[in-house]
């Protein structure tokens, strides 16, 4: 069944759930995945994001999200000024991403601690989003679940390590997917769970041999 509060909601700043609220959520997701305060952002708008984005405040919404604002923050229209105050520099341009969803954006981010992220995501309607690429690897997750994004070397046994750790904490796995750029290359595991993974489990996974990075995205209620 569809979430009742996708029908009666979201509570959001207008004018468009896909072009505004969804764009804020994409920005927020990118900030979380960066795991750092973004100081530089290069955003490439595709399709309808590029053509009607300005009228819908898509650009301001994306920046607001990068600044950590939720979709109902009344400061969203002022996000460009707030970005300047907080030292986030950004550029926008248009980019034709072949075969991408019409409401797509690709962005490259640099954080204050020099963390970097390259993400592509789209707004699929009603404020819902889908992340489609992370650091060049194809992925597919929505942020509707608590999500673990785990990068590891293509080591045998890593998957078992991760699922064992989650079982240890009684965390139920809802969906799971793995992708890698090439054989023997790095692997990206996306694990969506019903409950948030406790911090000590995230740290435990991080310490397993072959695991390069673990990011935990906690779903917004």
């Amino acid at each position: 069944m569809i979430d009742l509060f996708d029908i009666m909601g979201p509570i959001m700043v207008g004018p468009s759930s896909s072009h505004t609220a969804g764009a804020v959520r994409i920005g927020r997701m990118a900030r979380t995945l960066l795991g750092d305060t973004p100081v530089k952002a290069s955003l490439h708008l595709h399709g309808s994001f590029a053509t009607t984005g300005v009228g819908h405040g898509t650009d301001k919404a994306l920046i607001a999200g990068l600044l950590g604002m939720p979709p109902d923050d009344l400061d969203i229209p002022l996000s460009f000024d707030i970005a300047e105050e907080r030292g986030l520099k950004f550029t926008f341009d248009e980019l034709d991403l072949r075969d991408a969803h019409p409401n797509s954006v690709r962005m490259e981010l640099v954080g204050a601690n020099d963390r970097r992220l390259n993400m592509q995501a789209c707004s699929t309607g009603g404020g819902r989003i889908l992340v489609t690429k992370l650091d060049g690897t194809d992925v597919s997750f929505t942020g509707d679940y608590h999500t673990l994004i785990i990068q590891n070397m293509d080591n045998r046994g890593n998957l078992a390590d991760v699922t064992n750790a989650l079982a240890l904490a009684g965390v139920n796995v809802a969906n799971m997917s793995m992708s890698r750029s090439s054989k023997g290359g790095n692997v990206m595991m996306i694990i969506e769970t019903d409950d948030p993974a406790p911090d000590f489990i995230v740290q435990l996974i991080e310490r397993q041999p072959g695991i390069l990075q673990v990011i935990h995205y906690e779903k917004e209620s």
Partner: peptide, 10 residues
């Protein structure tokens, strides 16, 4: 760009 409730859409 004020705060509203999308019901069912914005």
């Amino acid at each position: 760009m004020r705060r509203i409730v999308a019901a069912p859409t914005a």
